[in-house]
Amino acid sequence: MRRTRKRQASRREQRRTATFLQRRTFWHDGQSAMQDTREKLIEFRDLQKIYRVGTELVHALRGVSLTIHQNEYVAIMGPSGSGKSTLMNILGCLDIPTSGSYLLNGTEVSHLSQSALARIRGRQIGFVFQNFELLPRTTALKNVQLPLMYAMLPRRRQRALAALERVGLADRAKHRPNQLSGGQKQRVAIARALAQEPDIILADEPTGNLDSATGNEIMSIFDELYASGQTIIIVTHEPDIAQRCHRIVTLRDGMIASDILSERGRAEAAPEGRPEFAPAVGAGA
């Protein structure tokens, strides 16, 4: 049990570095017509989410199909109520879709048991919330250790300290949330999401409660994480922030309205452009 888990983890690690290298060589050897060889991390097929409020049915997601590969940097945009948070919650295995299929690392998530979902939440996904969601009266270090504890990972203290180091808060390890600024709190939350070395980091409006300067600081952390090979998906209302990502998915009324490369994404991509990043899916809708 333990060994297979370890093997899985190391395979994930290998895959991540491999795809990172693949991507680099791919973009620079000019063979644009080639299919993207990176592994699919997330695959949504015709995902629907329907809430029932009393007798009324609320269609939060009406048929979303989306594929996200290793080491992508995706922004999800869209007007309020378009289903962004709903999508993120399903991505993060916090919620299950009403219908449709969600493959995470090739595993169909909809059929998993509660404890398997908990395991995925603890090991493969790092979630960053708009309002931080740190445990009050608990030090930053302890907050970061929380997922490590539930994942039963060894060397939790060192890992947590390393994660705090990465977000530049090593000196605030002993501070409690009420002794930290908003930006610092969000950085602790990011460290918490990072600590268990997840496959994806999901952030639902991580800068929504912060001023733009602090928001930029937070985004620099995400940039660094992306540069080190992390897959990141961010929900945001702000176009500036979306432009720092490479791909922008726009939702409208529970459907994907557009799925395009950002300016930065286009700049970093091959000169001919990438076929799978072309503004194709639901662009006309």
């Binding site: 509660q114 908990a118 395991r119 939440r121 997922p147 539930y150």
Partner: peptide, 16 residues
């Protein structure tokens, strides 16, 4: 309740 939600979102199982 919120704390429980958070714990679950970072990997706490029901039995935890």
């Amino acid at each position: 309740t919120r704390e429980i939600g958070l714990r679950k979102s970072v990997g706490a199982r029901r039995r935890d």
